[in-house]
Design a protein around this nucleic acid. Structure first.
Length: 535
RNA sequence: GCCCCUGUAGUUCAACGGAUAGAACACCUCCCUUCUAAGGAGGGGAUCUAAGUUCGAUUCUUAGCGGGGGCACCA
């Protein structure tokens, strides 16, 4: 609300200068000689100083008049101060904050909505785990992240489709089918040779048993295995609260002939070289990647290029993929392929999330689907709960190499900070229940420091959400919600909302409480967390 | 060897090139006859090392030392 306004306003005064709008550090203990540096800050003086070759303090003296004399500024700010080493600090006025509260309440659930993404259609693809085993803890990370990012895009006006790509073709699938077949024979009492390159996990035996019961014939095994795995992934996603708009099977691209078409087009455009009986895509001077193997089968890369083209042809202006860090090397290849087809490669954006390593019984485990070593998504959800799992991932940057200590997570699930937020929400509910029937008035009687603190938090929501839609720092939303909940708990301890003898004050505080409640709910919804009535 | 990510309190994580580096958990001291103590008040405790760029570096550059992930006619 304020940040954007400030940016525009200052830009119009100083059109040639690039500056930053900053949030000054807020010191926890203002009482102990820590200065109040205001609510917003501009580093204009540093920039001007450099340009003019003078000191920042000198530059600031000449600038400050531009602000203190401007009436529009005084509507929002009670004080604008120039302080060493050269920041111009803006202090929000109490009057403006009170007015903002009334605006926020009027907007309701739409508070924070924007039209920033209007006209952009995003295909957001995430999880897309190989259907050769159940979803694991690592998949839970991209599920939490992708789902929340999608929600934020929607709130900022983008048209979004959440998509899950199913690699239902290829070697790995055949191997899994082979593994199941052997386990079935084994269950029938035959002696089998179960090679180390087959899928070792227990789930293979379970499927085999199920197939025996259902009397699945041998030729149906591959199709049925994929179906079983995909159904499992769908059910896991659902338990996480993630709804995909589209489950896109790779086989569709082969059946429709799109893969062949793409190959033909790449050949026509001269990006293919043949060598050793295989067809390669030229990446750069010293790199090439196989598209068609010498046995005639296509690689994931060619299929992925066709898939990306398919997304664009479906009308998406951009394709955003969330991949695990192990696919880092594939980015350049896929982008090259997409560019070779004549698309702007910037329309394809790939976010990498670093790995989640698992610590169990004090030891780091190396996960491997093939070897059957992994921690199951469903198991984790059952033990720790959806909200705690989602929030655990959502509070961290995608680049963080996470260590997930299973035992600790189980033990500490009760202490997961998500409950701190939900508890604030539940406390508010019980206040509302107590105050039922009384009116919420205007904000005039708001005057306590803790109350203004909350108002300042509230007006930041639109800024946070819009920033995330640009920089994908989803964890900022989680931190914001934690901070808001914390400020609420502090307020709650110090001031009473219910005021038996002062209905005016009570109605003002109820209005504030409703604002906090509303914003907490918006945050919880965006993150796919439940908003409990009581705890 | 080359490429990507990463190194912050005892632990798990924050910090848009900005001001005295924030939380949570754990530890120590307090606070429930007033709206839910899953809460609040207070305390101790951290930027891997060395140079450089900058008015200003946890953030950028280079080098070193750790950690994770890639460098296939697998996905």
């Amino acid at each position: 609300m304020v940040k954007e306004w400030l940016r525009k306003k200052i830009s119009s005064k100083f059109p040639d200068i690039e500056f930053d709008i900053l949030t000054p550090p807020s010191f926890a203990k203002a009482s102990e000689g820590k200065p109040d540096l205001g609510d917003y800050s501009v580093n204009l003086a540093f920039i001007v100083a450099k340009r003019d070759g003078i000191s920042p303090m000198e530059a600031g003296k000449n600038l400050i008049g531009e602000f203190s004399g401007d009436k529009e500024f005084s509507k929002k700010f009670s004080k604008i101060q120039f302080v060493p080493p050269g920041f111009i600090n803006f202090y929000l006025s109490e009057e403006f904050l009170r007015l903002s509260l009334e605006t926020i309440i009027k907007e309701g659930d739409k508070f924070g909505d924007s039209e920033a993404g209007k006209g952009t259609k995003i295909n957001l693809e995430f999880v897309s785990a190989n259907p050769t085993g159940p979803l694991t803890v690592g998949n839970a990370r991209s599920a939490s992240f992708g789902d929340t990012l999608g929600n934020i895009f929607k709130k900022t006006g983008y048209e979004v489709r959440k998509e899950y790509y199913i690699n239902d073709v290829g070697n790995q699938v055949n191997k899994l089918a082979e593994s199941v077949k052997l386990r079935m024979l084994e269950l029938k009492g035959e002696k089998v040779e179960f090679g180390p390159d087959l899928y070792q996990g227990e789930y293979v035996k379970e499927i085999a048993k199920e197939f025996l019961d259902k009397v699945v014939s041998e030729k149906d095994i591959p199709g049925q295995v994929i179906k079983a795995m995909t159904d499992g992934a769908k059910s896991s996603a659902k338990k996480m609260g993630v709804e995909f708009d589209e489950w896109f099977p790779e086989s569709r691209l082969h059946e429709s002939g799109e893969v062949k078409e793409v190959l033909a087009e790449l050949e026509l455009r001269g990006f293919i070289v043949e060598e050793d009986g295989a067809k390669w895509l030229k990446i750069n001077d010293d790199q090439k990647a196989v598209l068609v193997k010498s046995d005639g089968s296509t690689t994931y890369l060619l299929n992925d290029i066709a898939y990306t083209k398919n997304k664009f042809e479906r009308g998406f202006t951009s394709a955003l993929n969330i991949w695990g860090a192990d696919h880092h090397g594939d980015i350049i290849r896929l982008k090259t392929g997409v560019a070779a087809l004549g698309y702007d490669p910037d329309r394809l954006e790939i976010l990498l999330h670093q790995f989640v390593s698992i610590k169990e019984k004090g030891e780091l485990q190396k996960m491997s689907k093939r070897a059957g070593r992994f921690v199951l998504f469903d198991e984790l959800l059952a033990e720790v709960g959806k909200d705690a799992v989602r929030f655990f991932f959502l509070t961290r940057d995608l680049n963080t190499h996470m260590e997930f200590d299973i035992d600790l997570a189980k033990k500490q699930s009760k202490e997961n900070p998500v409950f701190y937020i939900q508890y604030a929400f539940a406390r508010l509910n019980s206040v509302f229940a107590k105050a039922e029937g009384t009116r919420t008035g205007n904000a005039d009687r708001i005057k306590e420091e803790e109350e203004f603190r909350l108002l300042k938090d509230l007006i930041k929501l639109p800024e946070i959400i819009e920033d995330i839609s640009q920089n994908y720092q989803v964890h900022h939303l989680a931190r914001y919600a934690l901070n808001l909940a914390g400020d609420f708990h502090k307020f709650y301890e110090k001031h009473h909302i219910i005021q038996e003898n002062d209905t005016e004050l009570q109605s003002a505080r109820l209005l504030l409480a409703r604002g906090v409640h509303m914003v907490l709910r918006i945050c919880l919804d965006l993150m796919g967390l439940s908003a409990p009535e009581r705890m």
